[in-house]
Simulated scan of single mutants.
Amino acid sequence: MDRTEEIEYFRPHQVNRALVSTPRAGGKSFIVARALRRLGQDVTLYGFLGGPTGQYLRAECAKLGIRDRHTTIEGETRINTVLVDRHAGLATVINEPGPEISKTEAESLRRALDEHIEAGDILVLSGSLPRGIPLDTYAGLITSARQRGARAIVDAEGEVLVSAVSVGPWAVKCNLQEFRAIAPDAPEEVTTEAARQQLFDCMRVIVAAGVQLVIVTLGANGLLAVSRTEALEVSAPSVVAKNPTGSGDTFLAAFVAAYSNASSLEYALKFGAAAASANAAVLVPDIGPSPQLDTLVAGTTVIRHEPDFADSGVAGTDR
């Protein structure tokens, strides 16, 4: 659960009084699932839930129409605190360590996925792994999904991302800092055209190695995306940001929603960027029960670049 505390002026090392305190079912996977439901998608949520907070999240699944296939655990589901400075428009996130997952609990979740995932499904693997879960867990789930005719998209970091990419998921979505775990030669920031081209080159290397689509988000500066046939630069319209927490997860949900409806890659990226902007413009991460994104989509620009795989030996269309 995410508890958002809005403060007029956040002062470290001092007593701060919240103007508004809002509890909300949170975590990266839940934000993705909620946004998918807001956009009319059928979605099933897997994960680990325990204790009173876990029951709260199960109730939220029922309220939103999310199919709940969480694994019940002995530990307590964590509560994270988001401190929002109203004046600065910036957020400070404090993540609890969370429960440790037993081998039996981990195997239960794996069996649930193996039993229910079907051809044509999109499996979204989002966030860090809880304590007790092997670092190669996402890699195993990606392989299992592929064997069943499903596609997996990964939003992770560090060794978990490295392991996942090694088995060639359908897609990877990460921010620039996370991307550098799989592409150490990528620039630390993208403020020049040379840095942008360097990042494109690094993304092409990952695609050449077997990932069909790589998306790197750049915060307020938009995102870059590279597939086997396209290289796109997307800039979303600016909004007055109240809390950017969850915007990357909301982008991922909207992108998957549009792409699963047979939209072009370009439109799916625009739709995702628009949803991320809408999420950043509100205090508590959400795009609302009846999201109106048309204006934001219309204000989202796309620049096409040459795929340029001449040196990689990659040719052909997306699988």
Rank of each mutant, 00 (worst) to 15 (best):
R3E: 13
T4S: 06
E5D: 10
E6G: 01
P12W: 12
H13T: 15
N16F: 10
R17Y: 14
R17C: 01
L19N: 14
L19V: 14
K28Q: 11
R34A: 12
R37S: 04
R38L: 03
G40V: 02
Q41R: 15
L45W: 12
L45P: 00
Y46R: 01
G47I: 02
F48K: 07
L49M: 10
G50P: 04
G50F: 07
G54I: 08
Q55D: 15
Y56M: 13
R58Q: 11
C61Q: 04
C61S: 02
R69N: 06
H70Y: 15
H70C: 15
T71G: 02
T71V: 06
T72F: 02
I73V: 12
G75C: 05
G75A: 09
E76I: 09
V84W: 00
H87S: 13
H87A: 15
L90Q: 14
V93K: 10
I94V: 14
N95T: 12
S102C: 09
T104F: 15
E105S: 15
L109K: 06
D114P: 12
H116G: 08
E118W: 06
E118Y: 02
A119D: 12
I122Y: 13
P130D: 10
I133N: 12
A139P: 07
A145L: 03
Q147L: 13
Q147K: 13
G149H: 09
G149I: 04
A150Q: 05
A150L: 01
D155S: 02
A156F: 02
E157L: 13
G158N: 03
E159K: 07
E159A: 15
V160F: 09
V165K: 03
K173H: 03
L176V: 08
R180F: 10
A181S: 10
A181G: 07
I182L: 00
A186N: 01
P187Q: 07
A194H: 07
F200A: 12
C202M: 13
M203A: 11
M203Q: 13
V207A: 03
V207W: 01
A208K: 10
A209G: 10
A209I: 10
V211D: 00
L213G: 03
V214K: 05
V216K: 03
G219K: 00
G222C: 11
A225L: 08
R228M: 09
E230R: 05
L232K: 02
L232M: 04
S235N: 11
V239W: 06
V240C: 04
A241M: 11
A241D: 11
P244Y: 03
A253K: 07
A254L: 06
V256F: 05
A257N: 06
S260E: 13
A262Q: 14
S263E: 13
A268K: 02
L269D: 00
A273P: 03
S277V: 02
S277G: 09
A280N: 11
A281L: 00
D286V: 07
I287T: 01
I287Y: 04
I287E: 02
I287W: 05
P289Y: 12
D294G: 06
T295Y: 10
P307E: 09
P307Q: 00
F309N: 07
F309P: 05
A310I: 08
G313R: 01
D318I: 08
D318F: 01
R319M: 05
